[in-house]
Design a protein around this nucleic acid. Structure first.
Length: 834
RNA sequence: GGGCGAGUGGUGGAAUGGCAUACACGACAGACUUAAAAUCUGUUGGCCGCAAGGCCUUGAGGGUUCAACUCCCUCCUCGCCCACCA
């Protein structure tokens, strides 16, 4: 029997969660406790969870995101914030279309069905939203504005069409953005991605590369990890672009390098096989036929082959030479498979002595190696060198730059290049423009028209939305299914009225999700995507919560769109998300939950057996929320047991008679009061300083245990003490963000008439947490030997004396000299012996 | 190859220079019960010891410190991200 099969066998429930949960869910909704009037932004707090793609059903892994968000929302509400918490669906996308091809159900039908299932699940979890603001990206009232954004980008020359080698997924039969290619494979289906020369629409995100990078500095409340990933993805590097004169040609060959200090060691040039100058450079080569064949072969290598660092380097000499501007040396020009056309200028100066790849290539093709940087400890001989020396060092064989440290030479030689017009300083980014065309049906149509007379014409704003036709064949052909719809394709040119055709590609769904957080603010506007003033009142988002898998894609695109909106003056901020929290995955049997692996834990059954509060509590208690965590049904059972314990405690308290005021608290009452206030402090700090739900919950567990200790079994103990009643009320309040249904029910049982959401978060009393007596551990040379109880305001000298005379300590001091006694007030004493 | 993160009981984890193993799961024992479940009460890092107590223990090794899971150095293992990026 595995540890998950044995669930509670008792039919008896610890408490009637099956009646109280639906009851309070209905109550919260009917009383509109989570609905917000955006006209009143006083004390606003915008808490946003990444909206989901509507797949068949949610599992407990998805739940973590929404539960975390719901805790934040409820906590902030109790702290008096006006909390906006909207939800919607990222409803365009491939899975629905693939399902339609397989099962024949229209994507719109299956998507809307899935949405209603997911809404039911979200409701059952007790995660509440302002559903009046729901946005669904596949509906015309939403994608009209996605298309509008395209037009605005086009207007500003930030959307453009070009023919390019693009990533093509043969299984999804569509192109992919660079961000969607993982190790040369499709991020969705893992098929090997090939290259295709296609005419496609791009967004000029590179125009924003510098700002996207620089402004990461403003995002002080984002995880470092996400910022590092974005910064690596943008990949800024500074260097020099060198103009090489070609022997026997008036043309110039440009190369980018970050290591201009090694220019004297450059012995040849390498071009990417796709470099536009390749054909003219090989024109006069003696081995022209052979070279052309080799270059064709290199071009045919797939991205996945090319991406492997251990692939054998291949190259071929073009027959042409260029001159090294610093010394006039003639350098042969090669074509090599390790040069990428997409980066830099698609051509490099090769410095075999100081670059690992160039070294390998030079050895293979017996090209000269010239050392120009010496390691202060070693001197290199190009003949015996086993590998390239890529670190810094001292310049040698570099004419007037000899003897200076190489890192200084970078600046000096760059100046020298600019003075002599050999080239200029340049900045390169790894970030590429965002390819947004998709040859698929289930997406927002790109609002462009092609007229034989007028060329490419944008759809006028008044004609939006360009509606996605519903009667369409879904068979994937490698071209957009929209091409098959004559009614869609054939149209009139908005300029000349003549016959014209529509663009049939749809937009990447990441365009839909790059602006949805703005639509929530004024979701029903008919004449614009959002109202600028209201959006400025409510954004940036105060807390964004979602999965780490969006660290680059969605978060980078959203930042780009926001900066664009800021530039055209329709928003008054240039970063959309102030705080970002990325939660870890829930793992089952060592793997991420997925239908294909068959390790999905459905919340439905768990909620049926234990209730939503149990699922919530366990999900929050499982571990630090930013880390991955292994799901165990047994753990969930423990959470259920705890809620049963709390329920019975409150029952006991409710059925007791309470004396009004005790003149003098007993020792036990003092202890419970202190523990209560310490717990308020701990839980509040855990919620304020981060998302430390697991430790907050364990603190409440400790308080419940302490209360039980004092209640005793049966009727004795503290029952009837106002201190106990006070503790009970605080327990319910502290628990309420985590387990809202049971908390609401117990709150009413304790005699309150208003929702616990309207109650204030408890505040701890500073004087109540002070201990009059503290236990001081005593160490001798750092080893624990004894403990003593002392008054917390004891004087240091008195404590020293007590420590040295302690019965358990004295034997350890025998025959030794006390060198020092270290006292850390209220914490610890350490006797240092010689 | 580069970057980031992690490594603590049988398990999830707590402690960010000051009592290592909080809280929970599991296990064991007891109470209740005809019995079981549930509940309640204990015990539960390892070794030695009847006990008092002692010794060891946070991936390995070294260092700083009165004091190190925590800081520094070297190494090992795992995870994630990036990767022929010039």
């Amino acid at each position: 029997m595995t540890n998950d099969q044995r669930l509670t066998t008792s039919d008896e429930k610890f408490y009637p969660f099956d009646t109280i949960e639906p009851k309070w869910q209905k109550f919260w909704r009917e009383n509109r406790l989570f609905n917000v009037d955006t006209k009143n932004p006083k004390d606003k707090y915008y808490c946003l969870m990444m909206f989901p793609y509507p797949s068949a059903a949610l599992h407990v892994g998805h739940g973590r995101n929404y539960i975390i968000g719901d805790v934040v929302v409820r906590y902030k509400k109790m702290r008096g914030y006006n909390v906006l918490t909207p939800m919607g669906f990222d409803a365009f996308g491939l899975p629905a279309e693939n399902a339609a091809i397989k099962g024949g159900i229209h994507p719109k039908v299956s998507t809307l069905n899935n949405i209603s299932t997911m809404k039911r699940q979200l409701n059952q979890w007790g995660v509440e939203y302002d559903w009046e603001r729901e946005v669904i990206s596949c509906l015309p009232e939403y994608y009209k504005w996605t298309q509008w954004i395209f037009l605005k980008l086009y207007e500003k020359n930030l959307a453009y069409k070009k023919k390019a080698f693009v990533n093509w997924c043969p299984s999804c039969k569509t192109v992919l953005a660079n961000e969607q290619v993982i190790n040369g494979a499709c991020e969705r289906c893992d098929s090997e991605v090939s290259q295709k020369d296609l005419e496609q629409w791009f967004f000029r995100i590179t125009h924003y590369a510098e700002r996207l990078l620089k402004d990461l500095g403003k995002l002080t409340e984002w995880p470092e990890r996400v910022k590092t990933m974005q910064s690596n993805w943008i990949g800024r590097s500074t260097g020099v672009e060198i103009d090489f004169k070609i022997d026997g040609s008036p043309k110039i060959l440009k190369c980018f390098t970050t290591r201009i200090d090694t220019i004297y060691g450059a012995t040849f040039i390498c071009l990417a096989p796709e470099h536009p100058m390749v054909s003219s450079l090989i024109a006069g080569a003696p081995n022209k036929i052979e070279a052309e064949r080799a270059i064709q072969k290199m071009r045919g290598e797939s991205k996945i082959e090319r991406a492997q660092a251990d692939i054998t380097k291949e190259g071929v000499f073009t027959g042409s030479y260029v001159f090294n501007p610093v010394n006039g040396n003639k350098m042969p020009v090669w074509v090599a498979n390790y040069i990428l056309m997409e980066y830099g200028t698609g051509a490099i100066m090769a410095v075999p002595a100081h670059d690992t790849r160039d070294f390998e290539f030079a050895k293979q093709y017996k090209l000269p190696i010239e050392v120009v940087i010496d390691d202060p400890k070693n001197s290199f001989d190009p003949v015996t060198m086993k590998e390239a020396y890529t670190s810094e060092g001292v310049m040698v064989n570099s004419d007037k730059f000899n003897g200076i440290p190489s890192e200084q030479a970078i600046e000096k030689i760059a100046d020298y290049f600019e003075e002599n017009k050999f080239g200029k300083r340049a900045i390169q980014y790894k970030l590429r423009d965002w390819l947004i065309s998709r040859q698929r049906y289930w997406g927002a149509p790109i609002p462009m028209i092609y007229c034989l007379k007028c060329g490419t014409v944008p759809v006028p704003e008044k004609d939006l939305p360009v509606l996605l036709p519903e009667n369409v064949e879904f068979r994937p052909t490698g071209e957009s299914p929209l091409k098959l719809s004559k009614d869609f394709v054939n149209t009139k040119c908005p300029k000349c009225g003549g016959p014209a055709t529509r663009e049939t590609d749809t937009m990447d769904t990441f365009v839909d999700s790059s602006w949805y957080y703005l639509r929530y603010i004024t979701p029903h506007l008919k004449d614009k995507p959002f109202d600028t003033k209201t959006v400025n009142d409510w954004l940036p988002v105060d807390q964004y919560i979602g999965g780490i898998e969006h660290a680059i894609l969605h978060l980078l695109y959203s930042r780009f769109i926001t900066k664009f909106f800021s530039d055209i003056g329709i928003v008054g901020f240039d970063e959309p998300f102030k705080n970002l929290f990325t939660q870890g995955m829930i793992i089952k049997d060592g793997a991420k939950m997925s239908k294909s692996k068959g390790n999905v834990v459905s919340p439905d059954k768990l909620i049926e057996s234990y209730g939503a509060d149990t699922v919530r509590l366990y999900t929050l208690f499982i571990g630090p929320p930013e880390k991955d965590a292994e799901w165990s049904d047994r753990g969930a059972e423990g959470a259920y047991r705890f809620l049963g314990r709390v329920w019975r405690l409150i029952e006991k308290v409710c059925s007791s008679q309470f004396s009004t005021l005790n003149s003098q608290l007993t020792k036990e009452e003092e202890a419970l009061k202190r523990k209560t206030h310490q717990t308020i402090k701990k839980v509040t700090e855990d919620l304020d300083e981060g998302f430390h739900f697991n430790t907050a919950i364990s603190a409440i567990m400790e308080l419940v245990n302490a209360a039980y200790d004092l209640v005793g079994s049966g009727t004795g103990g503290l029952l009837g003490s106002p201190v106990l009643r006070d503790a009970a009320e605080r327990i319910v309040l502290l628990l309420s963000p985590f387990v809202p249904h049971i908390a609401e029910e117990m709150w009413r049982s304790l005699g309150h008439n208003e929702s616990i959401l309207k109650a204030s978060w408890p505040v701890y009393d500073k004087s109540a947490i002070l201990e009059q007596v503290v236990t001081i551990p005593i160490q001798v040379n750092g080893k624990l030997r004894s403990r003593i109880e002392v008054s917390s305001d004891i004087k240091e000298d008195d404590l020293k004396a007590l420590v040295l005379s302690d019965a358990k300590v004295r034997p350890h001091l025998a025959g030794k000299t006390v060198k020092d006694v270290i006292i850390i007030p209220k914490r610890l004493a350490n006797i240092v012996l010689r």
